[in-house]
Amino acid sequence: MQTTRKYIIVFLVFTFITSLTSFEGLNAQDDKFVVVLDAGHGGHDSGNLGNGYKEKNIALNVTLQVGKELEKDKNIKVIYTRKTDVFIELHERANIANREDADLFVSIHCNAHSSQASGTETFVLGEKNTGRNFEVAKRENEVIFLEENYKENYSGFDPSSPESTIAIGIEQEVFVEQSIVLARKIEDNFIKDAKRKSRGLKQASLLVIRNTYMPSVLVEVGFLTNKSEGAYLNTKAGQSKMANSIRDAIISYKKELDQNVGAHLFDVGVPEVTEVETKPMIVEGVIFKVQIAASSNELEPKSYNFKGLENISREKEGTIYKYFTGSTSDYNEAKTLQDKAQSAGYPDAFVVAYRDGKNIDVSEALKSASN
């Protein structure tokens, strides 16, 4: 009987210790560092199509590789906003991160420009929307036009309005400093490990990270519109290099937090990129437009029907409706609009010219400019 009691006591003690170990295991699971990885665009939103590459595919490949590497760390839990070619609304991407009570939100994209610009950029939320920063924010935010209920979801937000983009920077201000720490690590890794050109870390008002209640960054891994950079990003080796740089930055960021080493970054200078401006080429008496589509379907000439492109006009020729973007006497501006249209998903967009309301050859218009 005495022996039996001893066995019962030992069993109860063992069971108690085992239960404590189990609870500790559960707590360890709950205490994992949660990273939400967001592959930009997807589904019917291809992103930019520089040099024929699809941003949505490259962004997804890089994102999945970052996640695969991070998942090797048992202390990190990875959540994806998408793992396949599907369209996820911008506000839902942030909702996913908030529901998971994430520690980090990282959105991965590819850049585009009308020139042969190159290099990586990592954005954090902020009010510095001057120059190219505003253009990037505007381009990424215009994805909302592809959402059915964008007016309800974004409360009258206008991607083309600087006032709208300035307002959204305030909500995540408390996390900006930590976001800058991660952004700087990512860009440093792109330079040191991936041997890529970096355009630095920037601040812009980006909807995808507006409502995330944790440090958040948007990474542009390079320009698909740059011939050599686009080709590099379309390779497995290039995607692997970029993914590893992002992974290492996240791990380094987590390590700093674990060690309670909080770097204060007040008054961090966020570098601006100076773009080379193209001189105007005004042709008096001529209006240039960019034809983006021709169809038997009559569509409203609205931005949301044409992937966010602005100043849309429509002409009917027989049974065909032709659709245009822009209206300018500056030929170089028209060429920039053509590049923008092609990057937005209209690879066959071309410049047309009008004099006195009649269509003329562009070559004829340019000859009159040289006379």
Rank of each mutant, 00 (worst) to 15 (best):
N211M: 00
S313G: 08
E121C: 11
N153Q: 13
F123H: 00
G169Y: 02
G25R: 10
L104D: 00
R82A: 05
V13S: 01
G50F: 02
A28S: 12
N359R: 15
A59G: 08
F105Y: 07
E333H: 05
N234S: 14
A293E: 13
S370T: 15
N153H: 13
N51W: 05
A112E: 00
Y213H: 15
T63D: 08
N111L: 10
V261G: 06
Q259D: 14
E220T: 03
S343R: 10
I9K: 13
G345A: 01
R99C: 12
G345W: 03
N95S: 12
F23L: 07
A341G: 01
S296G: 05
V124I: 14
Q239W: 09
E148F: 00
R196S: 13
G200Q: 02
Y154C: 05
T120W: 10
T225I: 08
K197G: 00
A59Y: 08
Y346G: 10
R132D: 11
N75C: 02
L125D: 04
D101F: 14
A204N: 04
I79A: 09
S313M: 06
E256Q: 15
F288S: 08
G357A: 11
I9W: 09
N95A: 14
P347S: 06
D258W: 08
S198F: 08
E142S: 14
E140V: 14
S107N: 08
H41P: 02
Q203N: 04
T235I: 01
D330P: 03
E100G: 04
D101L: 11
T21V: 12
L299N: 03
A28H: 06
N48Y: 00
G262F: 12
S240A: 11
G326W: 10
P162Y: 13
G345M: 12
D188A: 06
F324N: 09
V351T: 10
L206E: 04
E100K: 15
A334G: 06
N149R: 11
E173M: 03
V10K: 09
P271H: 04
A341Q: 05
R132F: 13
R82S: 14
L146A: 09
E140Q: 13
F266P: 09
L233S: 02
Y150W: 15
P347R: 08
S252Y: 01
T63C: 14
